[in-house]
Simulated scan of single mutants.
Amino acid sequence: MPLPLPSLPSLRSFESSARLESFSKAANELNLSQAAISQQIRHLEDRVGGALFLREARRVTLTELGKLYLGLTADALRTMESAFETARALARPNALVLKTTPTFAAFWLLSRLPRFQQLWPSASLTVTAVEPSGQMDSLGDLTITTGQEQWGSFLIQKLFDINLVAVASPAVAQRTDLGRFLAGQTDAIIHTIRRLDDWGLWCAGAGVPPFTLDRGTILINSVLSYAAAEKGMGIVIAEEAMIAEQLARNELVKVHSARVSTGRGYYLLEPQDRTRRPIVDAFVQWIQQELAETKL
């Protein structure tokens, strides 16, 4: 039978002491006495069965066992803290928890949210960014994500289709040789790991030879890729709706006229078994109004 887990206060004392390399600084951070921190660390070491810290005159450092234990517990602590803050957010009056992709949050939602806050100044809005493949059935009132209507347990509203365009900064677009680009010979391109099929989809639709991963720069997600394109690092395949404001401000420009449909879209998902609260109803209506006023 597994032994009872160490107490949460002892784990917090351990994490803080390890990060700050000081029992006294950890005590200040956690609003405890240094003696209490030392006692919790000793208790944790007794439970683990070995020393977690090397005690020096003015600092403490992790032992090899301490480094291993910190690596195993730090993510769990962050997960518990995140779950606690999410639960607190749900309990607030006029609380709304929205899960969406990092790209939608950064490039579509954030610039528009002040308008919703003007309509609902008392709203307590929590936005959590998850990748499209992330878990969709955990805490949250609404989810906005991409796909092809594959969510059976939600009420689904399609917001808009995803069309791909090839864009770059004005400087990069100006110096790009269109002939070399159309022949698939341009090196100044940006790949997005979480959207590796974008170049293939766009090239097929535009009649351009595909660009392979041995050419250009590779970045983890669209947020970084679009930012890199703005800074002049190369050409990126972008979701047109996400970079509409950058196109309007001439921060990004199209390097080719092709606009290629992906067959995917952005969808609003809502749990089927949950009574819609007034704040949720207001947010859904606001999203619909914003879309009606936006040219996509």
Rank of each mutant, 00 (worst) to 15 (best):
G152N: 10
G66T: 06
Q148K: 11
F53Y: 08
R55A: 07
L77M: 13
I156H: 06
R42L: 05
L90S: 10
L119C: 00
N28I: 06
Y69F: 15
L159E: 07
L70G: 00
E131W: 07
L164F: 02
L52K: 05
L70Y: 11
N31S: 14
A129M: 05
L44T: 08
Q118E: 11
S133I: 05
V60D: 00
F107A: 05
S124R: 11
P132Q: 08
L62N: 08
R42D: 06
K99Y: 03
P132W: 04
E64A: 12
M136W: 01
E149I: 09
V97R: 00
A83S: 13
Q157S: 13
S111Y: 03
V97P: 07
L110C: 07
L70H: 12
T73P: 00
E149K: 14
V130I: 15
L30T: 06
A83M: 09
G49M: 07
A83E: 15
A129H: 01
L52C: 10
G134F: 01
R92F: 00
F116D: 12
R112C: 05
T63M: 05
D141G: 12
R58H: 13
L155E: 15
Q34G: 13
Q148I: 10
R112T: 06
S111A: 15
P93N: 09
T146D: 07
S138H: 11
V60Y: 01
Q157A: 11
T145Y: 03
N163W: 01
T63C: 07
A95H: 05
R115V: 04
L54K: 11
A95C: 09
R78M: 06
S138E: 07
L44A: 07
L164H: 05
N28E: 13
H43C: 03
A83N: 13
G49P: 03
L68K: 09
Q118S: 09
V60Q: 10
P102K: 06
G140P: 01
N31F: 07
E85S: 12
S82E: 15
A105N: 14
T128Q: 04
A106M: 06
N28W: 02
S133V: 09
T145A: 02
L68A: 11
A105V: 00
D161W: 01
L96Y: 02
N94Y: 04
S138W: 07
D141Y: 04
A57S: 14
L52I: 07
S122V: 02
F84H: 14
D137R: 13
S133T: 14
P121F: 04
G71L: 03
G140N: 03
L139W: 00
A76V: 11
S82F: 09
D141L: 05
I37T: 01
G71S: 13
S111P: 03
L72C: 03
V127N: 01
